[in-house]
Design a protein around this nucleic acid. Structure first.
Lengths: 213, 213
DNA sequence: ATTTGTATGAAACAATTGTTTTAATGTCAA
DNA sequence: TTGACATTAAAACAATTGTTTCATACAAAT
């Protein structure tokens, strides 16, 4: 039961920090949820802030395992890769396998603290580079910094459904928003992006390949 | 100096709530910044929460005045309207005339509280409906709920540059991110969106009209 | 000048915060 | 069993929190 306490503390901290943020979450609440004594956080982590940082790292580990980045066979058409990427990203945002973990990471991204650098290095950058590679394949003629703008447009679309879900649901109604599930959003963003890249004519090929692999 | 205290209290509350959030901001800090006594918040607003709500409303008023929605002459081509809309939205996000006000509103949108409904009604919905009208003009053939997806894609792109600025800057480097100013982002999002709508061929017309009106 | 009501100021209140101390408990090797 | 060490538990600490009390200052009206 020795390191189990530390583990339970991390899980509880992840959940409660994700829910309320650093300041609003109290160590007493976390310890109660973990079934541990208040002194435990000092014993294992030193203070509240270091517990927070460890909780973010913990969340970031859980997140990376959830929905892994696709690995493609050589020769996979870049269009297929793009749609796969968008699907993975959208799924991670809309149907995260570990909701609290993602929530805590998003919190950290919105207001970066000490734990942010590692999150970017281990979680964000790999996805960003993969997307850049796909876009380079699709449009070798576009200069690098313009490719960044394309990338921002794609992930911006995906992130919207998480970062602004409450507002969007308030606008179109909760029941109306339910219709926009992962699959529909994925297809929309893919089609929207392909059109923007001037590759709209190649869309049917991807859609077909999706239905009958 | 009577109602001036209330006004200064609101301004200070807006600033500090925007900076730290509801829980982390203390009434003593706000009162000190406003040059008022701690009892003033109770006297004028009752308690901290009602001060917060009033601060959000105050912020939302400041925001609406800053960069007004464009009003077009009859006969303005919808393409021009779209680019104008994107420019206004992007400007509001990247170069807000009242930084603290916008920050507080974004905070409220990320974690809606009691003040959120009014913000949506008075600030968000008017913009949403204007965008929907433009899109309907551009693509009358597309059904309404698909138009919502288009709208989400557009505002998702714009919001990215505010909600994820720290991360984006961390990815491409701060100096690299500086290159993406309002004008360049506006042109990119407009071109990206027109391509997605299958109207890429009409882009030059807008760009020209922009340079020589 | 007196009175009435509003506004401010300083102090105190009770509750909660993060953190520390100290004693008790458990565990495992000698 | 004894000892050493790791872990837990309860209590106390000092600081900060939102809120309230009450006396004072000020204003305008009678």
């Amino acid at each position: 039961m020795t390191d189990a306490t530390q583990e339970r503390l991390l899980q509880a901290a992840e959940e409660i920090f994700a829910d309320k943020g650093f300041k609003a979450a109290s160590v007493r609440e976390i310890c109660k949820a973990a079934g541990a004594n208040v002194a435990a956080v000092n014993y294992y982590f030193g203070d509240k802030e270091r517990l927070y940082i460890e909780a973010v790292k913990y969340a970031h580990r859980s997140c990376t395992q959830g929905e892994p980045l696709p690995v493609w066979l050589p020769g996979t058409p870049p269009l297929q890769k793009l749609m796969d990427f968008i699907r993975v990203f959208t799924t991670r945002m809309m149907k995260p396998s570990a909701a609290a973990s993602l929530q805590l990471m998003m919190r950290e991204m919105a207001q970066p603290t000490a734990a942010c650098v590692e999150v970017v290095r281990d979680y964000i950058r790999p996805m960003a580079e993969q997307l850049q590679a796909i876009l380079r394949e699709l449009r070798p003629d576009v200069p690098p910094d313009a490719l960044y703008l394309y990338g921002f447009s794609i992930v911006g679309q995906c992130l919207f459904y998480r970062q602004n879900r409450p507002i969007a649901a308030l606008l179109v109604g909760e029941e109306g928003f339910q219709k926009f599930d992962v699959e529909r959003v994925t297809r929309h963003i893919t089609a929207f992006t392909l059109g923007a890249l001037g590759l709209a004519d190649q869309l049917p090929a991807v859609a077909t390949a999706e239905v009958a692999p």
